[in-house]
Design a binder for these strands. Structure first.
Lengths: 146, 146
DNA sequence: TTAATTTCGGACAAATTTGTCCTTTATTAT
DNA sequence: ATAATAAAGGACAAATTTGTCCGAAATTAA
């Protein structure tokens, strides 16, 4: 559904939002360890999230990553997906046709329209805050509990 | 959503089903031209579809590809997806976690369950016959009408 | 039987995605 | 100022997906 990079991006953002703040930043190593992802690759992805103002970062000792309180409530799952994977999943044709729209639809156009609308609604209707709730309550996980 | 190979597979199968029969087979060149796909790559994909008994083929002059009448009514979109992309889209975790289920769900587990169920229902509820209908009526297309 | 045709199948190549390594830059504390 | 720390950024490497090429196998028609 999403690229590996996008999966890491969502996992990383959620972990940072749930476990860091402006006065308690966390490092790339802690993040990668917490979400079970390759350190250097995750660093690259975080750079993109920082550029897209989804995650904040500061350099130097006591530096690290965090998510602004405001951002936690304003950022939706779809914002992360769009920042990393672009808008292909929101507007591309299910069969990969360059020009597929209502006037010249592919055979699965209407079927996919429904699914895509449901997906868009979900992605744009779910905030970081919504997802952090389950994490804080211990109802959801970013890693297997062993 | 699907791999490029899977997109070609669906487009190719639909074109063959709509334009060929056991007494009027079509060649790989005709298929690739009709669905605007790379010939050799499409040939590889068709081999897989033949092995999965979704498409039939015969060699030699007047040989080519076709879909059995029975198969047209029995084959669902999901069968093609599974033959080419495997079952990842049906069972994988939305965030790529190896172990994500009801007892240890990822933060988006429930949201994705809904989307995935809708997708599965659509893929397993849509036959080749259903999709050929729009093609024959000229309501849907596998290529832009220029 | 021979030549032509068409899929099959393996090896190879290009492009993209995923992932690593190392140097630079910024910041902090001593 | 200096040293230590942590992200930023660029170059490179591995893996996967996408795509090509060509000979082999099968079938048909002359």
């Amino acid at each position: 559904m999403f690229s590996k990079a996008c999966e890491y991006a969502i996992r990383a953002t959620l972990h940072i939002a749930a476990h860091a703040s402006i006065e308690n930043k966390i490092s790339i190593k802690e993040i990668a360890s917490a979400i079970d992802s390759p350190v250097a690759f995750t660093a690259k992805i975080l750079q993109q999230l920082v550029k897209n103002n989804i995650v904040e970062s500061t350099k130097g000792p006591s530096g690290g990553f965090f998510v602004l309180e405001e951002t936690i409530h304003k950022t939706h799952l779809g914002d992360i997906v769009e920042a990393i994977d672009g808008d292909a999943i929101f507007r591309g044709c299910g069969l990969g046709l360059a020009s597929c729209d209502a006037t010249c639809p592919c055979p699965v156009h209407n079927q996919f329209l429904t699914i895509r609308n449901d997906l868009s609604t979900m992605l744009q209707g779910t905030t970081l805050a919504d997802l952090m709730d389950g994490l804080h309550k211990g109802e959801t996980f970013l890693k297997r509990v062993s």
